[in-house]
Design a protein around this nucleic acid. Structure first.
Lengths: 197, 197
DNA sequence: TCACAAAACTAACACTTATTAGTTTTTTTA
DNA sequence: TAAAAAAACTAATAAGTGTTAGTTTTGTGA
């Protein structure tokens, strides 16, 4: 049929991955066939293999791109010279913006990582565990420095991550409530509800 | 091979559904084959059809059982003669216990409902929307009655539902942190952080 | 113990899956 | 404009899917 449309600064592989993320989110990785993906791009399924290696490679790419983005931001935040409270706020805001800007990709990384094959599955889980434990360390530090109340660090981090992941639910209501409104509310709820006053 | 083992007060269909919920959670609905399900029960795939109608029927059963349980509890709570704060607390505690006792089923209802076919998909979404809007009404009433702060009801309900759904994450850490500890923490965070003091 | 019903089995079906081989068309480069 | 490279196409493969038909085994009640 027609040719793969490449927006500027984007290879054809990027176009395929972007569309894959969108379909994987809506129908799941296993629920999306290569024929379906191809049709959505306007090409035959076999043509995709001129640009990618395999279907699972697509999932790997999406999951590890997201994981990497979060890891990078965590690393940068850790070594920046601001208060622990500000560090936590920065991380939460990053989560919120990732969820808003890269909705499909973040959703897929959150929900479809189970479909990764070894050794990628183990690799992904290790990275996630590392991320969590470094956030816990951050909260512990905040408690030591008397910036935070004497809360359970593990519980606090998981509550934050849960609430942020819940931003998915808001995708359906983008019209009714503004993003800014949600962001302000959530930051207040999560951060200054914890910080010592 | 051997026969389906029926625990007392459980039909063979119940055994199949229970195992299906477990597998659907671990590998997804589309990622679980009927042969795999059968093998886990100790039977050939075709034998399952002596007890169930189809694979999708299994998903329907799981999703609507969960939806029904929540709807029933909501209905009962609404008409019980306690304060609005107590009503909300009761609902949150129910969510927590459903997540702990019926983990597989709740998880599947939360993540695999997309794989439902019409008209079940529409039906499920309608029911979920109804549930949410009735929770929002409850929060609105609490504000009117000056039991709650003047918060955004929609945001409040979604924050609560997000946090409760996040209990999934805790399944991995059951040993390290007690359920009671999480429950207390979460109720305090969600409810009495909202209620007027 | 014998007949009936329930539930297992084997074998096959029609269909979909990801992926490959080989060929033709399109685009880029010189 | 001709040669080379990129990317599309058609057609086919082997494996896996849910499900059905027909048969045999198992358990139950008279």
């Amino acid at each position: 049929m027609s040719k793969i449309v490449t927006s500027k600064n984007g290879t054809k592989k990027d176009v395929i991955i972007k569309k894959a993320a969108s379909l994987f989110r809506k129908k799941g990785f296993k629920g999306t066939s290569m024929r379906e993906l191809a049709e959505n791009i306007g090409v035959e399924a076999s043509s995709l293999y001129n640009h990618i290696g395999s279907k699972s490679e697509l999932l790997q790419h999406i999951c590890f791109k997201v994981a990497n983005d979060f890891m990078l931001q965590l690393h940068e935040t850790e070594k920046s010279e601001i208060s622990t409270t500000q560090k936590l706020e920065k991380l939460i805001r990053f989560h919120i913006h990732m969820m808003m800007d890269g909705y499909d990709e973040v959703f897929v990384a959150n929900h479809e990582w189970k479909q990764l094959e070894e050794p990628f599955l183990s690799n992904f889980l290790t990275q996630r565990k590392l991320y969590e434990s470094r956030m816990i360390e951050l909260v512990k530090k905040g408690i030591q420095q008397k910036e935070f109340k004497n809360i359970h660090p593990h519980v606090a981090v998981f509550t934050i991550l849960s609430a942020v992941r819940g931003l998915e639910l808001w995708q359906r209501h983008k019209k009714n409530v503004s993003i800014k409104e949600i962001e302000t509310n959530m930051i207040n709820h999560l951060l200054y509800g914890i910080a010592k006053q």
